[in-house]
């Protein structure tokens, strides 16, 4: 399977329907790379026309802005918007809620106007259109799955249903955690916390969330954000439950179940 870059597409005189914004975690983090690969496999199978920016993609500036470094954010935003506007990008899909939020909500007033779609929303519409067909008796049939709401998808952008609707087709048993949807508990990574040691406290946020996840008795914690994925995986290891439960992105669950 070949993943094209926008530069390659342009050189061959074609333009893809979507830019797949991979994001830094999806590009470099070994765990998140698996999510990226799973999602591009789905796109490929369904026959969606897309390309990535490759080396021309840069951090959206989300962690810099939320840490308080507006200069760095503006630099990154300027650079990214220049690149995307030069390619005439219209639609963007991304597997990262932080990239999603920044490009969708914060780039427009800086001159970057695109239709931005989170991968869970795209997966939901592909399912609705009948374009995603699953194997008979899929690997997750009857399994207990609990979905962890990403703050930047849920509270930040009011996307609560799409990921749940996608999970429904797995024919699994969906269990909610004690704090879910608009009351969902953060994984602890947002606001640039991912990139520094947590402040002193009585426990870590990801451990607190992992405890709630463990309490559901689910075998799979479904995530929709690479950072939530990392935080929850660490939390579950801390609870020594890594052999009983796995944290998997919704794209991975679908990719593995597709016919």
């Amino acid at each position: 399977m070949k993943v094209n870059t926008m530069a390659e597409m342009m050189a061959s005189g074609t333009m893809p329907e979507y830019l797949f914004w991979v994001g830094c975690a999806g590009s470099f983090d070994q765990r998140a790379q698996k999510i990226t690969k799973a999602f591009s496999l789905i796109l490929d199978k369904v026959g969606i026309s897309y390309a990535i920016l490759g080396k021309e993609e840069a951090c959206t500036g989300d962690p810099a802005r939320r840490a308080g470094n507006e200069f760095l954010f503006q630099m990154m935003a300027y650079q990214n918007i220049q690149v995307m506007n030069a390619y005439g990008v219209k639609k963007i899909i991304t597997t990262c809620p932080h990239c999603f939020n920044t490009i969708k909500n914060e780039y427009p007033e800086l001159g970057g106007n695109y239709e931005v779609i989170h991968h869970t929303t795209l997966l939901q519409s592909l399912i609705n259109e009948g374009k995603i067909i699953l194997k008979e008796g899929g690997a997750f049939k009857g399994k207990k799955i609990s979905y962890h709401d990403s703050c930047y998808l849920g509270r930040a952008n009011n996307i609560y249903e799409a990921p749940r609707k996608v999970l429904e087709i797995l024919d699994a048993e969906l269990i909610e955690m004690k704090r879910c949807r608009s009351n969902g508990l953060c994984c602890g990574a947002g606001g640039a916390q991912m990139f520094k040691e947590e402040e002193p406290g009585t426990t870590r946020i990801n451990i607190e969330r992992a405890e709630e996840a463990v309490a559901t008795g689910a075998q799979i914690i479904a995530s929709a954000c690479p950072f939530c994925n990392t935080m929850l995986t660490d939390g579950i290891k801390n609870k020594e439950k890594e052999n009983e439960m796995a944290v998997l992105d919704i794209a991975e669950l679908i990719a593995e179940s597709m016919a």
Binding site: C24, S27, K55, F195
Partner: peptide, 16 residues
């Protein structure tokens, strides 16, 4: 490096 971690920007599309 255009990413919050110290990776080479050249490697950004290596996963592909």
């Amino acid at each position: 490096n255009f990413a919050p971690w110290k990776f080479s920007p050249e490697d950004r599309e290596n996963w592909a």
